[in-house]
């Protein structure tokens, strides 16, 4: 189990492995030893992958089981039924919840992507006094616990009569978000400055440089921002919990929590309803992941290595 296969991209794993094999401490074992190591790695990874994926499979399978069999832990339902999906639609305004969530999520995503990219460009391209200091403030706000601003922000929305509506769930995004500003600025800084200087000489305005040159070049980072925010807005519970009262205005996570209160704590546990609603709330996120997988991975890797 030497670190033989820690190959870097660009070097083919087998080539790298055989290259170092000669100097490896277990040189006597030769290729068979390497093979054993590789098989063990694969076995471990497969077992772990099953462990990580199984809860999804369990949940999906249970959503097709009748009430009494939910906990039988069978991989495939003994009695296959769509009953639960019909029940969820009857017991809860699921379609409305989905619509509300989609509305909030789309608005939040569009708002934050546009505003954050503007701000990020402002910090990346222009030179002005206090720029470093101001950007330091942007970064510092990321450390601020939500609890510190939560109450006054609620009071602001209350004072303009917006509590109980969906507006507070997304409108704050019109003013950019520190994490995305950081991410996008990082990307803008990586673009060659000559490009923008040339456009400037050609008479392009600042706005044109931003919209016609910078933004199109920055598409991958914009996609990262959009899908991150899409996920964040879709899955958020805290804000809907604070702002929404009426079941008709609920988002899916807020509705799901109300189902827990109603069918769990409120009476005998109707697990099949909770399971099915969980599946419905999760599926759009799984789709989002497979659509934007590349961007998720790149975006997360960037935050970790450049932070």
């Amino acid at each position: 189990m030497t670190a033989l296969d820690t190959a870097r991209p660009g070097i083919s794993p087998t080539a790298a492995a055989s290259e170092v094999e000669a100097q490896g401490r277990g040189g006597g074992g030769g290729p068979s030893r390497r093979k054993v190591g590789r098989v063990l790695t694969w076995l471990a990874l497969t077992a772990l992958a099953v462990l990580f994926i199984y809860p999804f499979v369990w949940l999906l399978s249970a959503s097709f089981k009748p009430r009494g069999e939910v906990f039988d832990n069978r991989l495939l339902p003994k009695t296959f039924t769509f009953e639960n999906y019909i029940a969820v639609w009857q017991e809860a305004p699921m379609a409305l919840w989905l619509f509300n969530t989609l509305l909030v999520t789309v608005l939040a995503t569009v708002a934050v992507t546009i505003s954050s990219s503007m701000v990020a460009w402002g910090f990346a391209y222009f030179r002005f006094r206090g720029r470093k200091y101001l950007f330091g403030v942007v970064l510092a706000t990321m450390m601020l616990p939500q609890a510190v601003t939560m109450i006054p922000v609620f009071l602001i929305w209350e004072s303009v009569g917006m509590t109980g509506t969906l507006t507070p769930l997304w409108a704050g995004n019109l003013f950019g978000s520190a994490f995305y500003i950081f991410l996008l600025r990082q990307f803008f800084l990586g673009l060659p400055r000559e490009l923008f200087d040339a456009a400037k000489i050609d008479g392009a305005s600042n706005w044109q440089i931003f919209t016609r040159i910078a933004l199109p070049l920055c598409k991958p980072a914009l996609v990262v921002t959009a899908i991150f925010e899409f996920q964040a807005a879709w899955t958020d519970l805290m804000r809907p919990l604070i702002y929404l009262r009426d079941s008709d205005t609920f988002t899916v996570p807020r509705g799901l929590k109300s189902l827990v209160d109603q069918f769990g704590f409120g009476g005998e546990w109707h697990w099949e309803i909770l399971i099915t609603a969980s599946v419905i709330s999760t599926i759009p996120m799984i789709i989002l992941f497979f659509v934007g997988q590349r961007y998720f991975v790149q975006g997360i890797a960037t935050t970790g290595t450049k932070g």
Partner: peptide, 16 residues
């Protein structure tokens, strides 16, 4: 496989 669970809404994780 390892990343996918991260996509689950936290409410659903609570139920799970």
């Amino acid at each position: 496989a390892f990343f996918l669970p991260k996509m689950t809404p936290p409410v659903a994780i609570g139920i799970l």
